[in-house]
Design a protein around this nucleic acid. Structure first.
Length: 520
RNA sequence: GGCCCGUUCGUCUAGGGGUUAGGACGCAUCCCUUUCACGGAUGAAACACGGGUUCGAUUCCCGUACGGGCUGCCA
């Protein structure tokens, strides 16, 4: 018998789902949940389903669904089935499955597992106010207005007259509910502690609890991989599978640790992003008001693979000392057993480090294409050959894609600001002739490349008995305004003779002026 | 308050009855270097606490503390 069960399990293709709710921008934690689901599905040659849980009419936000699809596409977690991807278990948008939930909720009533409740929200509020720990359950429901306490004729009357009602799960005390969580092991609940959860709301929409059980069953979901915030309600979900008689088809559960805010307490929220100045969303989101605008990892200059790698390791590690993994490697190595149980703090520094690693590992042609739109937005030149050269010079010094055009702005436009402190330290009027000589020599230099430039300039300095370490820093300051940046010779080679001499001229003028204003 | 989950360097984590408790981020120092970075080297830095079990617990068990989640006609 057991062997048979195992064989059935083995042959059952894994089907997991990512089921976000379109109530705004998809949080980065949602992306991680999607990632783990995706990894699990791919590893088991299974199916990754995208289901949209839009049963809350009030919190529905237009554009949120499109955002979810775009975010998944950006990070490359493409569903096999679901909203926007087809499949034979649809529709995959819960608002389009209203009739299904209605039917199943009423089935439960017929089986005596659920009941009608006519208490208004106001009445419930009042009850909660009267009793601080009020729960609608086995002990309190007899004082409430529901089909368990009212006369059948009265209930029928209310129903016929279209009185608003909800359907509640009838939770009977005295049952042990055992959840075998793939990450946490056995978790036990007592039904006596559970309330009679609303299954169908007065507007005819199901609650999450009903919808997720009905859909997971109908969509043949085998593994539910979701956030830890769902662990407590899993007890209700088990009860629902029992009530429907589907316990044998109940999926396996795995509850993921939460992503915590970088400091302080609580889970990471969208507010933390604006507070600490880093993205907590995959893509930027334009809200109705400026306070509801949020920065995305994409717009902040992250590579999607870096984001995935970072998120993957926020709560999972295969063991060993490797930190950088391709998606394919993650698919091969992933296992729920290696997902940690405790919450993980969001570490933006680590995220940036991953991005730096991925930029370094990305070829120049690809990077040039990636920064092209950024250059375009700034009004910079956008020809790929030039961008590739910029990338080659800057890639070891950036952490974000945006750094190419921010940190390296001087490769596209004249120096905006000079580092006065460095000028104070490096400038010496005696250096003026040297810079002028360099400018002059550069004009006729052939070929105009870094190697030739270095040889030529160093020779010139030697002729004039000047130290390289004395002249190069001030040369750099004239060219780019700062002490940071790529090799001076590489920079000159990229800027070209005309631009270089112009910058030297401007630089010297600035240094002289700087010097004057600093002499007491 | 009740229920549930958790606890290894500041952070992400590896490990697991006997280890110099490993790696990574960040930090510090040094090397390389015209600068910054990259790269290399080194360093500071952890098993929450108390009881058991055991020859021996950071590892297993129980408490406590602390943290987190849930407690909605939200998901």
């Amino acid at each position: 018998m057991k062997a048979l069960h195992e064989i059935v399990n083995m042959e059952m293709t894994v089907r997991v789902r990512f089921a976000p709710s379109p109530t705004g921008a998809l949080h980065i934690g949602g992306i991680r949940t999607a990632l783990y689901n995706y990894l699990y599905a791919r590893q088991h040659k299974g199916v990754f389903v995208l289901r949209i849980e839009d049963t809350d009419q009030v919190r529905y936000v237009p554009g949120a669904e499109e955002y979810i699809l775009e975010a998944l596409a950006w990070v490359g977690l493409i569903p096999d089935e679901g909203v926007g991807f087809g499949g034979s278990y649809g529709p995959y948008r819960q608002s389009e499955r209203k009739a299904i939930y209605y039917k199943y909720a009423h089935d439960l009533i017929e089986r005596g597992k659920a009941y009608y409740a006519f208490d208004t929200p106001e009445e419930l509020d009042a009850a909660r106010e009267r009793e601080p720990n009020f729960a609608y359950n086995y002990w309190t429901r007899e004082r409430m207005r529901n089909s368990l306490t009212m006369k059948p004729s009265e209930v029928e009357n209310l129903l016929r007259n279209g009185a608003p009602y909800v359907i509640r799960l009838r939770v009977e005390p005295g049952q042990d509910i055992l959840v075998h969580d793939l990450i946490r092991g056995e978790v036990v609940f007592q039904s006596s502690e559970l309330d009679d959860k609303v299954l169908l709301k007065a507007d005819g929409m199901p609650t999450y609890h009903l919808a997720n059980i009905v859909d997971d069953y109908l969509m043949r979901i085998t593994h539910v991989i979701r956030g830890e915030e769902w662990l407590p309600s899993t007890a209700h979900h088990v009860l629902l599978y029992r009530a429907f008689g589907w316990e044998a088809h109940m999926p396996r559960f795995a509850h993921l640790p939460l992503i915590l805010r970088p400091e302080g307490q609580g889970k990471l929220s969208k507010r933390d992003g604006v507070r600490f100045g880093f993205p907590v969303f995959p893509l930027s989101w334009k809200g109705a008001t400026p306070e509801e605008n949020f920065l995305g990892f994409r717009e902040a200059g992250f590579l999607p693979q870096a984001v995935l790698n970072f998120l993957a390791l926020l709560g999972w590690h295969p063991g060993g000392e490797q930190e950088v993994f391709t998606l394919e490697e993650m698919v091969n190595l992933f296992s729920l057993e290696h997902v940690s149980k405790s919450g993980a703090r969001f570490d933006y520094d680590k995220a940036k480090w991953f991005n730096q690693r991925y930029i370094l590992a990305t070829d120049n042609t690809t990077l040039a294409q990636l920064i092209r739109p950024l250059a375009e937005k700034k009004g910079y030149r956008t020809d790929l050959p030039y961008l590739e050269r910029v990338v080659a010079l800057m890639k070891e010094r950036v952490t974000l894609l945006t750094d190419f055009v921010e940190e390296g702005y001087y490769l596209f436009e004249p120096v905006r600001t000079y580092d006065d402190e460095a000028i104070q330290k490096r400038w010496n009027p005696a250096l003026k002739p040297a810079l002028e000589a360099i400018a002059e020599r550069i004009l006729t230099l052939q070929p105009f490349d870094a190697v030739t430039l270095e040889a030529s300039i160093k020779a010139l300095l030697q002729e004039q008995q000047l130290k390289v370490g004395e002249v190069l820093p001030i040369l750099r300051l004239a060219l780019v305004g700062t002490m940071k940046g790529p090799s001076v010779f590489d920079t000159i080679a990229l800027l070209g003779p005309t631009e270089t001499t112009e910058r030297l001229r401007r630089g010297v003028a600035y240094f002289l002026q700087c010097q004057r204003s600093h002499v007491p």
